[in-house]
């Protein structure tokens, strides 16, 4: 499987992250998005007329939407990542996959404008991002009250992977995550997954290892 990749693209990172979590080996092709704008070059537009990154190729199959790539990887390697089979669970996964497009547009747009100087209406995208984050915070709080840590099932699914990167990188676009405790706990749960990989701006959990407990001085003292 070949992934046309960019190290700073959260959409490409989603695919790399799920591949790492389910143990699929990807052949990465680095695309000079910034500053070279290679994703809009003729050869890449021939693969993806939309001129966006990532692109996943497996034999005759060409995928240009990251949500579809997540479905494909999960179905090929680890179907439990697709979530439950009943109507509610299946629809819930689809709901969050579609929701993740809003994150790409709003949080992703704010990040590209604020960090890489792409044109865009930064205040409008930041306001829209806040509405998205409040909706996500409310949903995750509700899940937590039900005793669950993830968006669409009692285990992580592609819904979590689809939403995680742009949310975690919200500060890159000048959007703070301080007001959202449930989102922060959910991000920590994702970063704790065995096989988790990082991307620039999303650090691994080594800063959060538990404090060592000394037998001579129990924690309760």
């Amino acid at each position: 499987m070949i992934l046309y990749d960019y190290i700073l693209s959260p959409d490409a990172y989603k695919v790399r992250l799920l591949a790492a979590l389910v143990g699929v080996k990807l052949e990465l092709r680095a695309v000079d998005v910034h500053p070279g704008r290679e994703h809009q070059s003729e050869p890449l537009r021939a693969l993806n007329p939309a001129g966006s990154i990532p692109i996943l190729i497996d034999g005759d199959l060409i995928l240009t939407e990251s949500a579809a790539m997540l479905v494909y990887l999960a179905r090929r390697a680890a179907a439990e990542w697709l979530g439950g089979d009943d109507a509610v669970d299946a629809a819930r996964v689809q709901q969050w996959l579609a929701f993740s497009r809003r994150l790409t547009e709003h949080l992703g747009g704010a990040r590209a404008t604020e960090m890489l100087l792409e044109p865009g209406d930064l205040p409008a995208m930041q306001r829209a991002s806040t509405i998205d984050l409040r909706e996500l915070e409310a949903a995750l709080s509700e899940r937590r009250i039900l005793g669950q840590s993830h968006l669409a099932a009692d285990r992580p699914t592609i819904a979590d992977i689809a939403c995680f990167p742009y949310v975690a990188l919200a500060p890159d676009g000048g959007v703070s995550l301080d007001p959202y405790p449930s989102i922060r706990l959910w991000m920590r749960a994702i970063r704790m997954l065995p096989g988790f990989i990082e991307m620039p701006g999303i650090h691994r959990l080594h800063d959060l290892k538990p404090e060592p407990v000394s037998p001579a001085m129990p924690e309760t003292v």
Binding site: I7, L8, A30, V31, D32, H34, G36, D172, P200, G201
Partner: peptide, 17 residues
Amino acid sequence: TTDLIHFQQMIFLQDRS
């Protein structure tokens, strides 16, 4: 060249936050 650019961008974006 793209890999060299991305290596440096990766390092610098880790610093940015």
